[in-house]
Design a protein around this nucleic acid. Structure first.
Lengths: 202, 202, 202, 202
DNA sequence: TATGAATGAGGATTCATTCAT
DNA sequence: CATGAATGAATCCTCATTCAT
């Protein structure tokens, strides 16, 4: 998924590094101080550049934040894809668990940054981008299961997918943040919920 | 749940009305414009008082926002309690559905305000207060079910309760905001998920 | 003519004084440093108030500048009116000279401020307001002379008025700024030009 | 009139073209957007060069603007000269009209650029250069008429020249911008004013 | 208590200019 | 010569909060 539109297209190597530094810095500042305190000047300072440079690449604060989210969102696509491939052909329960494990692992890895977004960034600043991911996941899930479901149950499947995606997203994130009990037990529970939601197959 | 600590205790009737007006105004402004745009001056203007007066009743912006949340949170206690009483003695499935229906109804009623908080207020501004409610709900749920569960399964029950509370909260809110399909179908689905999480009773 | 729209209506005496101080300060800064250098912070500093206060009364830099011009423009209305009254009934030549003398006197009095506007403020910032004055002056001039002119010459009168107003305005200001020769000689010259422009009376 | 001092003398052909492109671009941007919005970066972009290159030819923004004015000013010298030659030997009235026509034509041709300067550029940025032209015009006018005037009237001639130059400049520009009535009528009026200013010849 | 004028630190953003490549 | 990335001081403006009246 594309990074935010850039004012200056980074043709030179130096540009590319600068963009990286800005996004890195923004992630750090967001995690440390939250959205409100993440002023452009502060992000620039953290990146070791001048405030003006920032505006060579981003049109403003929101675009920088968007780039940080894009990075997280892109991470999911990349890290869940292998699990999806591995799961293909396996029975539904182990397949589901495999994928959920990958999702949870990715969340765990970005834990601090995700925590910062959840706690300190108003959702309207990033909802659109996360929603795009959500839609993609829902589409994939739907088509994975649709084949083995009678056409009459498509509506039920739609509802199950909506519910699953929301449930997995929320519980995964909350579990990673709070870690209220053991990882395996959580994955078992979550797998059971998701599998239980699927309409009876043919 | 207590209102935020006030600088002046509103012993007099007029004071109480002023507090109401401020909280009302804050709810309106938050729903209309979000947290960032909800300046104290704007809230005061909406309430028809001067900015200075505001500080006679609240120590600052965050305390006003807290009072708005408290009102929402208190609403739940009040409106779910009757359903809880009615559910007592009924079989688990209809009982659960009854309570979930009440929860959903309350969310639906506060839809705009909840949407404003979810979308536009950084969670750290209100997380503590919602967490307190969450804990209370978890406690009640735990004790309601604990009696019919073997002591050995207490850990499993803990996990099921954590998962249920998080799931119900999230799905209920998201369903009320998006209304992606029919209400009854949703309640059926959600009831099934929650009941399915309960450890096998004795 | 009205001052620029104010955000805060100066009900209290203190407000009125603050507005005065801001407009005074803006005039000083404009005359000293020009439009570009007349930052809101600098105007505030000159006025001995904080930058925020400024925005309580004016929506921004342009509105402050407009208030300064309004003051100058209003000055003309007030100071030329007596001359107009005195001129009524006199023959055209002494009457014209009387009015031009009053105009020049007023320009001379505001010399520094007018110089600052002419030299250092882009005209688009104040053209509209000066144009309003110009239109009023043209209207008055037209009606003063129209009575003694055959209806057939109205077009010619229109042209003469347009030319007179522009000529008087420009020469008066430039003369006051440069003072290239004696005041009396200038008034004689200018009176001759203006009287010469008038279409032949009945 | 000389171009502004350059950092590098454009001995080479390519350099000369670059300078042209910069001045062209500056004229376009000034006419389109005014002085404030005419940033060096924007001028460079319009010229199709990089901001750095600009500083190879001009010491800064003001020097670029000066070059644009010089071009306008030089245009006058070139386009009024033929009219002056043609007017020589003719009676004063048709001669004056001929020259004024040429002046007006030149203003009309540069209408947009002149409008941009008048409306949107603080006069102090270009006053010196226009003043140089004004002085030259005044000198020429003085010597043209001086021969036929008694020496005793030299002071009067001085005053008439000052007034004429200012009047012609201002009315010509304002007429071209506003076009409030017919061109011929304007030239008649203006010619009459100027001729009327001349001291009685011997 | 209520008022509302005043505060002032801090935020987002721009742009003339420089300099390493 | 040209490039274009980088600079950083300076600008306009906001808003939570205070305090004299």
């Amino acid at each position: 998924m594309a990074m935010a539109t850039r004012r200056r297209t980074p043709t030179q190597e130096r540009s590319r590094r600068t963009v990286e530094r800005i996004v890195d810095a923004a992630a750090v500042v967001l995690a440390d101080a939250g959205y409100d305190a993440a002023s452009t000047n502060r992000i620039a300072a953290q990146a070791g550049i001048s405030p003006g440079t920032l505006y060579g690449y981003f049109s403003g604060k929101d675009e920088i934040v968007a780039a940080v989210i894009d990075r997280v969102v892109d991470g999911f696509a990349e890290s869940v894809a292998p699990a999806l491939r591995e799961a293909a052909g396996q029975p539904i329960e182990p397949a589901t668990r495999l994928v959920l494990d990958a999702v949870l692992a990715e969340v765990e890895q970005r834990r601090d940054l995700i925590a910062a977004f959840i706690d300190r960034v108003p959702a309207e600043r990033y909802a659109a981008r996360v929603d795009a991911l959500r839609t993609r996941v829902a589409d994939v899930t739907f088509h994975l299961v649709a084949a083995s479901i009678p056409a009459a149950d498509r509506d039920e499947l739609d509802r199950a997918v909506w519910t699953s995606v929301r449930t997995v997203e929320h519980l995964t994130v909350r579990f990673a943040l709070a870690q209220p009990f053991e990882r395996d037990a959580f994955l078992d529970l979550l797998t059971g919920m998701v599998v239980g939601l699927a309409p009876p197959s043919r």
